[in-house]
């Protein structure tokens, strides 16, 4: 059922959510809009195409405690479990889509990442459709769109001075019927569908430039191409692309101990770092920028699709905007297609 909520009522809802649980929302600070815990709706920035960092920060935090240990003569291990419930507001369609891609890695197969699973279970995602996609956005290249709502518990679409709303899951219905009680009104179904359609069909200019179709297969026989040598030379070897990416999920485990007790953490790692694959004996199967750059793009556009049958990218455009040297996935897709077309 489609609903509407006024901007003022949405503020009231967000204030309630901030009071009753942990609310994460876009905040503008020193010129950067990013997701942060907020205490009140008044802290939230609504004028953003997308946040600098993604919902990944709160479902799969950059570092999190896994266990506590004591090693004074004996050994005891205490598992640490993420318990805190949270609501994330203002999540864009590309980031909602990224959650499904992360789910495939972290919750399927023989082993589940129980920390991620717990956070997923305890997080309500409130999506916000895109009014004005940035010139680096290309979600449509992957078949998503500015109104794509899959993954949201509640989806909001700005419609004039109010919002069209739809609860898409039990968690979402609990928000609408619980803290949201009395704040939503039923929407005119036809008008609401028209709003959704307008968002779904909204133009994403950069998306038109990036044709992803068939890139997974083109890369099947591209491992040895000279292209990787050429393109990787400009890589700075920093972790920007991997850390701002909503789908990059590589991590390392690390201990910090003092006086017989300590913590084991899980921290993000980056395939762009030289030490990432370096083994204890010194051998490194990916010794130079060429192998590392190739790995990142092959993973997103070929290896992951082989395993999980979709691309590991949602076209959020963060790497397009933030890679200091313009070595981003949209460019690689265009380049590979160009190389193949001339081959």
């Amino acid at each position: 059922m489609l609903l509407t909520i006024t901007a003022d009522n949405l503020k009231s809802l967000l204030d309630k959510l901030a009071r009753d649980s942990l609310l994460v929302a876009p905040v503008l600070e020193d010129g950067v809009t990013r997701l942060k815990p907020v205490k009140a709706a008044s802290e939230i920035a609504l004028d953003y195409s997308n946040t600098a960092t993604s919902i990944k920060d709160f479902l799969f935090p950059q570092s999190e405690d896994l266990l506590r240990f004591v090693t004074d003569g004996t050994l005891s291990i205490e598992e640490i479990k993420p318990e805190r419930a949270q609501v994330a507001f203002g999540i864009r369609p590309c980031d909602l889509a990224s959650v499904a891609l992360m789910d495939k890695v972290l919750t399927t197969g023989e082993y589940a990442d129980t920390h991620y699973q717990a956070r997923r279970k305890n997080t309500v995602l409130i999506g916000l459709a895109c009014e004005s996609p940035a010139d680096t956005c290309f979600c449509t290249s992957y078949g998503y769109n500015p109104g794509h709502s899959a993954g949201a518990d509640v989806m909001l679409y700005k419609d004039g001075d109010q919002y069209l709303a739809e609860a898409l899951s039990d968690k979402g219905r609990e928000v609408v019927g619980g803290p949201g009680e009395g704040l939503f009104k039923p929407a005119d179904e036809a008008a609401g569908q028209a709003v959704k359609k307008a968002y779904a069909e909204k133009e994403v200019p950069f998306g038109k430039e990036v044709d992803v179709e068939g890139i997974d297969q083109l890369l099947d026989n591209f491992f040895d191409d000279q292209y990787w040598d050429d393109v990787s030379k400009k890589c700075l070897g920093c972790g920007t692309c991997t850390y701002v990416c909503p789908t990059c999920h590589c991590f390392l485990l690390t201990d910090e101990a003092r006086g017989g007790e300590g913590l084991r953490f899980r921290c993000w790692d980056s395939c762009m770092f030289a030490n990432y694959t370096k083994m204890a004996g010194g051998h490194n199967p990916r010794p130079s920028k060429k192998e590392r750059v190739r790995q990142r793009f092959m993973h997103k556009l070929n290896y992951y699709p082989h395993r999980y049958h979709s691309y590991l990218c949602t076209g959020c455009g963060r790497c397009v905007a933030m890679c200091p040297v313009g070595l981003h996935i949209a460019g690689v897709i265009k380049d590979v297609k160009g190389v193949k077309a001339h081959a």
Partner: peptide
Amino acid sequence: LEMKMQCGVGKCGRCNVGD
């Protein structure tokens, strides 16, 4: 094959050879 490993359960990313 021997590769550097961290998680051992197919999540952390670094021990892949191709897919």
